[in-house]
C-alpha cells in the first residue's frame, strides 16, 4: 500500500506538470493510450505509464500486458533523461527493451523537452517583476546548492573510502553486482540441470 501511495503522489505531480507545461500534452499525443511498462530491476518493481488525452496514469503493477517495456537498474533509467543514451545503454546490456521502441522514445523526448515557464505561473500571484526576481533567486540558490552538494559529496566520498574505509569504491560494487548476476545465472542453470536429472530418474 505504501508503494501505491507513493505512486499516487508521483502521478499527481506528473499531472500537475501537464497543467504547468501545456505543450507537454501535444508532445505526448503520439504515445496516447500506449502502455509503457517500466521494470526497475534493483527495486523489483514494475510501473505502468499510460497517457490518455489529458491525463497521465501511473500504476504499480504485475501485469505483463504492454506495448513497450523497458527494464533496467534505476541509475540506467535515470540516464534515459538524455534520449541519445538509449541505443548506447541497450548495446551495453544495461537496458532491456521489448515492444515498440518509439513509445519509450516518445515519453523520453516529451519529458526531456519539458519547459515550465515558472515566472509566468508565479506572476499570477505576485505580479511580473517580483515573480522574475523570485525566479532568479531560486535559480541562484539552485546553482549554489548544486556546487555545495558536489563539494560535500566529494568530501564525504573521500572520507568514507580513503580515510575511514567504511565504504567500497563504485567499481568494486559494480564488480560485485556483476558477480552476483553471474552466480544467479549459474544457480538457475544448476536448478534446471537438477530438474532434468530428477525427471530422468
Amino acid at each position: 500500500m505504501l508503494t501505491n501511495f507513493i505512486v499516487a503522489l508521483v502521478e499527481r505531480i506528473l499531472n500537475t506538470s501537464l497543467k504547468l507545461d501545456s505543450t507537454l500534452i501535444d508532445k505526448l499525443e503520439p504515445v496516447s493510450h500506449k502502455r509503457l511498462l517500466i521494470d526497475i530491476r534493483d527495486w523489483q518493481q514494475q510501473f505502468l505509464l499510460v497517457f490518455t488525452e489529458q491525463h497521465l496514469h501511473l500504476y504499480s503493477t504485475n501485469e505483463k500486458q504492454f506495448d513497450c517495456m523497458i527494464s533496467g537498474d534505476i541509475d540506467t533509467l535515470i540516464a534515459l533523461k538524455n534520449p541519445a543514451m538509449l541505443t548506447q545503454l541497450i548495446r551495453q546490456d544495461k537496458l532491456d527493451l521489448q515492444g515498440d521502441l518509439n513509445i519509450a522514445q516518445g515519453f523520453s523526448n516529451a519529458f526531456s523537452a519539458m519547459d515550465i515557464d515558472w515566472p509566468e505561473h508565479f506572476s499570477r500571484y505576485l505580479g511580473d517583476a517580483p515573480a522574475q526576481q523570485l525566479w532568479q533567486i531560486m535559480q541562484n540558490a539552485k546553482r549554489q546548492g548544486l556546487v555545495t552538494d558536489k563539494k560535500v559529496a566529494a568530501t564525504l566520498t573521500q572520507l568514507c573510502q580513503d580515510e575511514l574505509k567504511v565504504t567500497i569504491h563504485p567499481l568494486e560494487l559494480d564488480q560485485f553486482k556483476q558477480q552476483t548476476r553471474q552466480l544467479k545465472g549459474q544457480v538457475a542453470q544448476l536448478e534446471q540441470r537438477i530438474n532434468q536429472l530428477l525427471q530422468l530418474h
Binding site: 505512486v7 502502455r35 500504476y59 504499480s60
Partner: peptide, 18 residues
C-alpha cells in the same frame, strides 16, 4: 482515504486498455 489506494490497485490489476 485508503479506499482510493484499494481502487488504484484494482485499476492496476485490470489490464484495461483502449
Amino acid at each position: 482515504g485508503i479506499h482510493r489506494l484499494w481502487k488504484r490497485q484494482t485499476i492496476a490489476s485490470s489490464g484495461v486498455r483502449k
